[in-house]
Design a protein around this nucleic acid. Sequence first.
DNA 1: CGTCACGTTTACGTACACGTCATCTTTTCT
DNA 2: AGAAAAGATGACGTGTACGTAAACGTGACG
Lengths: 133, 133
Amino acid sequence: MTDQTMTIRQMCEDFDVTPRTLRFYEAKELLFPQREGQKRLYGKRDRARLKLILRGKRFGFSLEEIRQLLDLYYMNDSQATQLRETYVLAEKHLADMKAQRAELDEAIAELQTQMDWGRSRLAQIDPQQAKAS
Amino acid sequence: MTDQTMTIRQMCEDFDVTPRTLRFYEAKELLFPQREGQKRLYGKRDRARLKLILRGKRFGFSLEEIRQLLDLYYMNDSQATQLRETYVLAEKHLADMKAQRAELDEAIAELQTQMDWGRSRLAQIDPQQAKAS
DNA sequence: CGTCACGTTTACGTACACGTCATCTTTTCT
DNA sequence: AGAAAAGATGACGTGTACGTAAACGTGACG
């Protein structure tokens, strides 16, 4: 684990995942760490990719969708022919995320309304412990 | 399907789910439609609950988490003892959603940056078809 | 009266995202 | 050197969220 690369353990601790998960992502071609003999060595690129993978998961994208999106972030010059295609895909995902944000805002507002109601109910029942928002 | 109630088909069309899904949610105690003989009849309450279920799913909550959250929205007076407990749970979910929104904002910003870069690349390669944002 | 369309239950099947052994090298510590 | 720790591969298991097929009931329609 010279230089900028790290072992699987280190990665697991940094990102709070298991070795199994990292090997699984590799099998699904979302990560491709270098090998030093048998051992996997994760570099800067892998860390950046993993960050995006985990983020994508939190937003409900499947690993397969994420795999395709990673192409946008790690496009090289020789893949210029696929650039437009990838760009269109990215537009869809961006629209998805914006829609999700709008819905999320609405959901937050509604839940907060419910909680205001709940808090007033609590205040009636149990006046001494009422909290502020 | 008198009055304010509707059949399973109608529900499926309105919410774009399958009958299997609705029965599954019922088995998991997220929905409890009335019965007219054998047949399920979905009322206003069920529709509101289903809306929340589908929303929760889009935000990455499991059905079990959603089931617990539904208690907040459909709390009745006799469950006042559980109100505080439910309130605390709701606070966690609200915090979750706010964190998710923050991350989502970041992700949107980053993706947009990437797309700006991609668009400029496209413009170089293929000047006539360049689009605006 | 038959035959659909719609609904029900029960049961098995499936895709996804890993968890959990078992077994085997390869390092690393003492 | 010997044991423990870390890493690898392969295979099978697991939880979630349904899909799908079989077998049956039941009201509506030509």
